[in-house]
């Protein structure tokens, strides 16, 4: 399995999409840093003295800004996960590159798991760097005005959920890759991710205006593709508990007004495991 993991690393690094994504991520971090710096200066200039209202407002702004950065970070991570893994099996089958690998003394399960571990670990590394980069910018560039008050354990808990997103996406991408062509798989996954993305917003909106039907739509979309719940859990962990009335975790469009339940987390994890299981089964049974 290790040789396949190594080939997967090499392939990801060699592919233009990874290089471009890394460069664009650096540009995004730079932009986020500039935005944070200006926001900190503006808040300091305009809001002035530290009254309770001002503190509340600063807290809201800072969490929204960081939430926005993290949300965009999760989108980049998700797209990178989808685009780098949806073709990992399918394109090799289409081009017959896979033939000489599979003609070796290696099971298809080993090949698939090698691909999974290679892709997942690489994407986890990317997600960790991006997440910690955003937090670091918020903490250091934001200074006393825009830095969200968070503990190391909150960061780690938020990061834990954040890195689960690419892992789940790799599992589902590999399932699509073992079933269908690269293009078809890519389209299906992006639509599913879009459903989850929109469903997440609809659910948060429903929760804010107490509309049960909107919340139900969000829950159904999360059941179809549960990636948004991971982002919500991540922000929830980072920005305090949801049941705290003063918590900024529940506020704004990037907050988590409707918190995913532990059952949803279990469902999400199971979703990934089942997807990987079927990816292996289908790959074992199909002709290449």
């Amino acid at each position: 399995m290790w040789p396949i993991i190594k080939i997967t690393y090499r392939e990801m690094i060699s592919k233009r999409i990874f290089t471009i994504t890394v460069l664009m991520s650096l540009a995004f971090l730079l932009l986020f840093g500039v935005a944070t710096w200006f926001a900190a200066r503006e808040v300091s200039d305009k809001l002035g003295a530290a009254s309770a209202d001002v503190m509340m407002m600063k807290g809201f702004f800072s969490t929204q800004l960081l939430g926005m950065g993290l949300y965009f970070g999760s989108i980049i991570t998700a797209l990178l996960a989808i685009l780098s893994s949806v073709g990992s099996i399918a394109s090799e089958i289409e081009s017959h590159q896979i033939d000489t690998w599979l003609a070796r003394a290696m099971t298809r399960r080993q090949y698939m798991l090698g691909k999974f571990l290679g892709l997942a670990s690489m994407l986890i590394l990317y997600a960790v760097l991006l997440y910690l980069g955003l937090i670091a910018i918020n903490q250091w560039v934001g200074g006393g005005e825009m830095a969200v008050r968070i503990s190391a354990s909150q960061v780690m808990a938020g990061l834990g959920y954040f890195i689960l997103l690419p892992v789940i996406l790799v599992c589902v991408s590999l399932l699509m890759s073992s079933m269908t062509t690269t293009v078809t798989g890519g389209i299906v996954l992006i639509i599913l991710y879009g459903i989850s993305f929109i469903g997440g917003f609809v659910e948060q909106l429903g929760s804010l205006i107490n509309q049960e039907s909107l919340i139900q739509i969000g829950i159904v979309s999360s059941l179809i593709f549960p990636t948004d719940s991971l982002f919500r859990l991540s922000t929830l962990s980072l920005f305090e508990a949801v049941d705290n009335p003063l918590s900024f975790a529940s506020q704004g469009i990037f907050g988590t007004a409707s918190a995913p339940s532990p059952a949803m987390l279990a469902y999400t994890l199971l979703y990934g495991v089942v997807a990987l299981f079927f990816a292996i089964r289908i790959f074992q049974k199909r002709d290449v």
């Binding site: 040789p3 190594k6 060699s14 000489t100």
Partner: peptide, 29 residues
């Protein structure tokens, strides 16, 4: 397949590897 070599009709190899890297990966497998 343990002691089998194969040259496919549609020989396509990862073009982002060098010849030596390709052989190294196969050797590892």
């Amino acid at each position: 397949r343990r002691k089998v070599g194969y040259l496919p009709e549609l020989f396509r190899y990862p073009d982002w590897l060098t010849g030596r890297q390709l052989l190294k990966h196969h050797g590892e497998i």
